[in-house]
Amino acid sequence: MIRRVRRLLAAVAGTVIATATLALAGPAAAHAAAARVDRPAAGVDITGEHLDQPLRLRAATHPAEVNAVLDQVSWLGRTGQQQGPKTADLGPKYTVVVLAGDAPTKTYDLYPLAKGGPRVYRPAKQPDRSKTLAGWFFGRLNMSETLRAAGVPLQRQFDTLSGGVGGGERVIPDDALDPGQDLDAAMGELQRLLLLNGGVMLVITAGIAGIALLVRRRTR
């Protein structure tokens, strides 16, 4: 009888632990799957100011230019700032559409001459219908030169101020940053994590209580 109770106890405990592990690992695995790129980009299309027709760059014929443009947007995080600069401070806009085969998958708006440094806006609505949070991001300092090398009619820009050999600093005004937006996003993520952990603890507690009740009945 005691052996049967021990086996039952071990089985129930294993089920509870497995459930808790899946609950914790599930969101991370889903996010990793969403972030994984199944196929390499076949190319990019660029439209914008002073472009009479789109620049159609393909990896087969312009690999360096395609990779350089993708490098401007491939590093973006899950959340960005909800509010961007004033429209008058953005400068010319260039829309980059990333292609997989002949199908568009991602789209981004690039502002290489924005006041305070280049900016990237990622719309929530994406061509591949993936769930993406809209947001503003500070772009790479070489955005203007990258687009110019790809064929966008931009004047040569000096994106960094020399700070010595290998040095440099970004020119960002004090009012360009909005830490409140990032703090709100971080607090939202923390709240969701706490709710998830609370749910897992509730499952574990219920499992232990059920085991204790079962053992009590079996040993009477």
Rank of each mutant, 00 (worst) to 15 (best):
Y108T: 01
G163R: 12
M143Q: 02
T79R: 12
P173E: 09
R78L: 12
K131L: 10
L24Q: 06
P112A: 05
T21V: 06
Q155L: 09
A124F: 09
G116F: 00
L193N: 15
T160A: 15
L202E: 08
Q157V: 07
G91L: 04
R140L: 10
R156P: 12
S74I: 08
D178I: 02
A134Q: 04
A59Y: 05
A100S: 14
H62E: 11
L195D: 11
P127T: 01
P27M: 00
Q157C: 05
G198R: 01
M1Q: 15
T95M: 05
T95S: 11
K115D: 11
R36E: 13
M201K: 12
A32H: 06
R216P: 05
V97P: 00
L190G: 06
L55Y: 03
D71K: 13
G77I: 03
G116P: 00
S74P: 03
M143E: 02
G43K: 01
L24S: 08
M187N: 14
D128R: 03
G210T: 07
V171E: 11
S74N: 09
A209H: 05
A20L: 01
G80Y: 03
A35K: 11
P40R: 01
M201A: 15
L57H: 02
T205H: 11
R122A: 03
L57N: 04
T146R: 00
S74A: 11
T21C: 06
A41V: 01
Q191M: 08
A30N: 11
A209M: 07
R36P: 07
L213I: 10
V37I: 13
A134W: 04
G180M: 07
V12K: 12
D52C: 05
I211T: 11
V171P: 07
A10R: 11
P173K: 07
H31N: 10
L161I: 14
D89R: 03
V96G: 00
V44W: 03
G188P: 03
A42M: 04
A209K: 03
G210F: 07
I2V: 15
T132V: 08
I2P: 09
P118A: 08
Y121D: 02
A176P: 04
P173W: 01
A41F: 01
L183K: 09
N197L: 14
A29E: 15
A41T: 02
E65C: 04
R148T: 00
P27H: 00
R156A: 14
L90M: 13
A134K: 03
L57K: 03
N67T: 14
K125I: 06
Q53I: 12
A209L: 08
H31T: 13
P118R: 02
A134D: 04
A33S: 12
A209I: 04
